[in-house]
Structure formats: C-alpha cells, structure tokens
C-alpha cells in the first residue's frame, strides 16, 4: 500500500548516487586528461615538478614549482635539465656546466652542478663520469614559487594527509546534494 512511496525512495537515491559517481568520474578523468595532454604537448613524462632539495638555492627553494618541457635543441651550458640517474627514483634538477657533443654517436656528454653545491655532480652519478641524452627527462622553462610546498608538507607530516582525507570524507557525508 506504500508501494509508490517505497518506489520513490529507492529510485531517487540510486539516481542521485549514480549522478554523484558520474560527477566524481568526470572530475577525475578531466584532471587525468589535462595532465596527460600537458605531458604530450611538452613531450615529457612529468611537465610539472616540485623542488625537493636546496641544491639550486637561491634560485629554487624546496616546494617551488618548475615547469618542464623536453629540450628540442641540444643542451648547452647554463641550461637547467632534469635528469634521472639509472637506479635512482628521484629526478635531479641541476645546471649544465660542461657539455661535449660527440661526432661519432651524435650523443652528448653532460656534466651538471647545483648552483648551491661546492662541487659538480660526478659523485651523484654513481659510476659514469657523464650523463647522456637518455638520462634527460626534461628542461626547466618556467618557475612558480611556494605552490608545491603542499605536497612536501603532506609527505613530511603524514598526519596532515590523514586529517585532510578525513575532512574531505566528512564534507562528502554532510553534503546535501
């Protein structure tokens, strides 16, 4: 005898739930599409990186945001590439201080140094004397201060991460729409 009301009750939540799920999926996929589109456009796997160390101070501080693109021309001294040492996870952003263009292979021998470091990066390379083209994953083109500090804070203080997640969950629960 309450079939109409029950139907209305069961129907409405499913629809609104589905709409919410759809909204959520749209937001996530838009963000992913923009990130990947930027990666294709700049030809680098990570078009935006956060500075993690003070080795390029006073130009780049911890938490500053760098915009990268893959160098389309050969690197020259003074350029600031981002390179990955084989076997190490974290990419390094340092300035090129030596470059040698090989005639036989067309490759480049690259030596880098952090502006704030006393010595160059040979000791970081873990064996090889030079970095080569294949180690380069991008080149710094633009700069924005402070913005990336959120990610560093979330990494350094895990409690902050859980607090933020909890807050987001609570706000979802209490939201009317």
């Amino acid at each position: 005898m309450f079939s109409n009301e029950i139907a209305a009750l069961t129907k409405a939540p499913i629809r609104s739930l589905l709409i919410q799920v759809l909204n959520f999926v749209t937001v996530i996929s838009t963000a992913l599409a923009m990130w990947k589109g930027l990666a294709v456009w700049t030809n680098t796997e990570s078009p935006v990186v956060v500075v993690l160390s003070g080795s390029m101070e006073p130009a780049f501080y911890r938490g500053d945001l760098l915009f990268l693109s893959m160098p389309d021309k050969p690197l020259r001294v003074g350029d600031i590439p981002v390179y990955k040492i084989p076997g190490m996870d974290i990419p390094i952003v340092h300035r090129v201080i030596e470059i040698h263009d090989e005639i036989s292979t067309g490759d480049q021998l690259i030596l880098t140094k952090g502006d704030n470091n006393d010595s160059d990066d040979i000791s970081l390379y873990q064996g090889p004397r030079w970095m080569k083209k294949k180690n380069i994953i991008g080149q710094v083109k633009g700069y924005m201060p402070y913005v990336g500090y959120v990610t560093i804070a979330l990494n350094d203080y895990p409690k902050l991460k859980y607090a933020l997640l909890g807050l987001m969950g609570l706000s979802l629960l209490f939201q009317k729409e």
């Binding site: 020259r76 003074g78 030596e98 470059i99 040698h100 005639i103 021998l109």
Partner: peptide, 12 residues
C-alpha cells in the same frame, strides 16, 4: 677531434 662542440663553465 672527436667532439664538434665542447662547452665548459670556468667561472660563474
């Protein structure tokens, strides 16, 4: 002979 261009920073 082996490198068509060599660049090195000597002072900054």
């Amino acid at each position: 002979k082996d490198h068509e261009l060599n660049q090195a920073v000597i002072w900054d």
